[in-house]
């Protein structure tokens, strides 16, 4: 168990969105969360990374045996939690490579490793750029500024590859991607799979799941996980929707 969420209640503004959610992520496994719009999928991912919109009113999220709730967003990141944002924000004037080197070095210092100098880092970044089929000018452009939807998503994956996190949350990583981009992104993700790392894939569509081959499917509805099953469940959800699922508890 790398991440354990128990009886999580969370609000955004005055509205309670998560109502006693339980979920455990196993090491080395890919967990997919599916559910109708407004079920609380994004709130769940925001709660894990400590987003300012979300107020946790009850329950706990523990990571590697310790509660996350008191940690700042950057502390959670340094501990190894990474989220690929659904709509990565544009930060004008902040150089993409500079930003990523700063983030990587913060993590390396945290892990007791030596910082990478600019040349070492650029070598690393360029290798990944090529592998992801991204343009070399990603080094010099401003963070996400003027990126197409596909470029933004690939840039998220690039960051994930470089930061080498332990828990990876992919929030609608497939939205707005054409088939080539979807393949490249999926390959990037699959490349990261190993026995220590866990993935939490939040999605509406089964398309990406064909590539990512999740170990578990969780259905999130009305602020709770109502069903957990193997990948076979996807087909049923695709054809029958979510209405048939009732609280099993």
């Amino acid at each position: 168990m790398i991440l354990d969420i128990k009886n999580l209640h969370a609000k955004i503004g005055d509205k309670e969105i998560l109502k006693g959610l339980n979920l455990s992520l196993e090491k080395g496994k890919v967990h997919a969360i599916m559910g109708p719009n407004g079920a609380g999928k994004s709130t769940l991912s925001k709660a894990i990374v400590g987003h300012y919109d979300v107020e946790i009113t009850a329950g706990d999220i523990s990571y590697k045996g310790k509660s996350l709730l008191e940690l700042s967003p950057e502390e959670r990141a340094l501990e190894g939690i990474f989220m690929s944002f659904q709509n990565p924000v544009e930060v004008p004037g902040v150089n993409n490579a500079y930003f990523l080197r700063t983030a990587l070095n913060a993590k390396r210092i945290h892990d007791g490793k030596e910082e990478l100098n600019a040349a070492q880092f650029l070598r690393l970044m360029r290798e990944h750029l090529t592998a992801l089929g991204m343009k070399p000018d990603m080094v010099s452009r401003s963070l996400n500024e003027g990126f197409s939807g596909g470029e933004k998503k690939r840039n998220e994956i690039l960051q994930m590859l470089i930061l080498e996190p332990d828990v990876i949350i992919l929030d609608e990583i497939d939205s707005g991607l054409d088939i080539d981009a979807l393949k490249a992104v999926s390959e990037g993700i699959n490349q990261m799979k190993d026995e220590k790392r866990s993935f939490l894939v939040i999605t509406h569509y089964s398309r990406i799941l064909d590539y990512l081959k999740p170990d578990y499917i969780h259905v999130l509805k009305d602020g709770k996980i109502l069903k957990t099953a193997g990948v076979d469940l996807v087909e049923k959800l695709e054809s029958e929707g979510y209405d048939w699922i009732k609280d099993e508890l």
């Binding site: 967003p73 990141a77 989220m83 930060v91 004008p92 004037g93 902040v94 930003f99 983030a103 960051q159």
Partner: peptide, 21 residues
């Protein structure tokens, strides 16, 4: 928040955004 989610502390994140500006 985006910068902090990547492990950059708040002060550095503010400074980074201001420099970008």
């Amino acid at each position: 928040f985006y910068l902090r989610q990547r492990g950059i502390n708040e002060e550095d994140a503010v400074s980074m955004i201001v420099h970008g500006f």
